[in-house]
Amino acid sequence: MLEIEHLTRRFGGLVAVDDVSTVIEQGRINAIIGPNGAGKTTFFNLINGTFAPTSGRIRFRGQEIGGLRVDEIARLGIARTFQTTTLFNHASVLDNLIVGHRLRTQSTLWDVLAHTARLRNDERICREKARDALDFVGLSPIANRLAGDISQEERKRVAFALALSTEPSLVLLDEPAGGLNPEETEGLSELIRKFVQHGLTVCLVEHKMNMIMKLADKIMVLNYGKKIAEGAPAAIRVNPAVIDAYLGSEHAEV
């Protein structure tokens, strides 16, 4: 689904992503791990258009996307969540999600000023998509609650729902389980599996190794911006370079 070839991003003298090549496999859970500062979030930022590559290629379903704007990449079908879930706290959960489907609508400023039939139809569709996304992530009962009043775990699910409302085929999840307890982490893992069961492809960055080892089909390991290993969880767990750079010996024995 997504092909990365010799991807590099420099910030002055710092090489944040250094000649990385990989493939995000369709219909699977792909994971990226590594120490803090390894380049994981920068890698995501290059895929979703926050940064343009210094060099290298990013192809999504055969189309070159390196250097496209964030909104252009989102329209192609790549959604992204962030480490910190930022919502409009004084708006309802449902209203926070309505914005997600806006990139699929056709209304213009004139439609807004004239309150046209097209605008009204777009608003209806956006609300329907928001409700569908809330139902998918299990949050329909809190649709009308203020976003500022919901729990951290519910905020994570709202972020998943917001990504879903853009109608993606690939979802990038940046530390989705951060700040969650083990029970909440397991619930989020089940939701990620549900994504794939419904035809989506997932790529996630995460530091919770027990979660990743149980969840991922394939893992890529970054260190100082370079790819040092890639493969199935069983192989990554015992890879000497990965143990030395990140996991530590205790994970090789799990």
Rank of each mutant, 00 (worst) to 15 (best):
A79G: 06
K129F: 07
V93Y: 05
V93H: 08
Q26F: 05
G67C: 06
G37C: 00
L188F: 02
G199R: 01
G49F: 00
L204P: 02
H6K: 12
P176G: 01
V20C: 08
G66M: 10
I150V: 09
V202D: 04
G56Y: 07
V242L: 09
V205Q: 02
F136R: 02
Q152I: 10
Y246D: 05
K194W: 01
R120K: 11
I236L: 03
T166G: 12
A16D: 02
T50F: 04
K227D: 06
A52D: 06
R155V: 00
T108G: 14
A74R: 03
L7A: 09
G248V: 03
K226R: 15
E250Q: 11
M211Q: 15
V23Y: 13
E186H: 02
H6C: 06
L247F: 12
E186R: 05
Q106E: 10
A161C: 05
K208T: 11
D135K: 13
A52I: 05
A177D: 01
P141H: 14
G56L: 07
Q63M: 11
I212S: 03
A38Q: 07
A161W: 09
L139Q: 06
L7G: 08
T22G: 14
L94E: 13
M1S: 02
T105Q: 08
L14R: 08
I47E: 03
L170C: 08
S151M: 11
I65D: 10
T22C: 15
T8A: 01
F44I: 00
I58P: 00
M209N: 05
H115T: 09
Q106D: 12
S189C: 00
L146Y: 14
G248A: 09
T108C: 11
D111I: 02
F51K: 03
A161M: 08
R10Y: 07
C126D: 15
I212P: 07
V112E: 09
H207I: 01
A16E: 05
R9K: 14
R120D: 11
C203K: 08
A216K: 04
N45Q: 05
M213W: 01
I32S: 08
E250L: 13
A232S: 08
A114T: 12
I65Y: 09
L139V: 09
D18Q: 05
A252P: 13
E206W: 00
E186W: 03
Q83D: 05
A159T: 00
D111M: 02
E72M: 08
G199D: 04
I228S: 09
G56P: 10
L103W: 14
E206K: 00
S189V: 03
S55Q: 12
G12W: 00
E3G: 03
G66L: 04
F60Q: 09
V99H: 10
G148P: 06
M211W: 06
A74G: 11
R104I: 06
V254T: 13
